[in-house]
């Protein structure tokens, strides 16, 4: 990695009912984690069109996190299963275009798992930081 002070740009698309609530709980509990992730709220991870993620990488994102409810806990019954399937397929697409599939991550954080949200944040940021800037960055814009 060229610049030691380099900070990744990571976007998180998270569901309203579990992961967003869990992230709020982490806030209430004042769990401190690194600030390199920006979150976008959707009602369910089922809403996450793979094109959103490809668009994010096209825009130069260094990493993308999709986080929803645990299996069986989806507010809409099964949206997270469908999201997980799509992310699984999408990872193979990323590999094919020469992007490390670790840049895309799906996690399951419930509304009561504030501490886990903090751990996920640390872990995702650490993983993407180690991978360095996205090779697609220079093509962004």
């Amino acid at each position: 990695m060229a610049d030691e002070n380099w900070k990744p740009k990571i976007i998180a698309i998270i569901c309203n009912w579990c992961s967003y609530a869990g992230a709020d709980l982490a806030g209430g509990a004042r769990i401190q984690y690194p600030p390199d992730i920006r979150a976008i709220r959707v009602m369910c991870t089922g809403r996450v069109d793979p094109l959103f993620i490809l668009k994010a990488f096209q825009d130069g994102a260094d990493g993308v996190l999709v986080s929803g409810c645990h299996f069986g806990d989806c507010h809409y019954l099964e949206g997270n299963y469908k999201a997980a399937k799509r992310m699984f397929l999408l990872k193979s697409v990323l590999k094919n275009i020469g992007l490390d599939d670790k840049r895309l991550r799906m996690t399951f954080v419930s509304a009561s798992e504030g501490a886990k949200w903090g751990t996920v944040m640390e872990d995702v940021i650490k993983t993407v930081t180690e991978l360095g800037p996205s090779p697609l960055k220079e093509f962004a814009r």
Binding site: I40, M43, D49, F52, A56, D59, G60, R141
Partner: peptide, 15 residues
Amino acid sequence: FATPQIVAQIDAFLL
């Protein structure tokens, strides 16, 4: 939560 709205959020952050 329309596609153009979400894509606009992604673009706004990254671009």
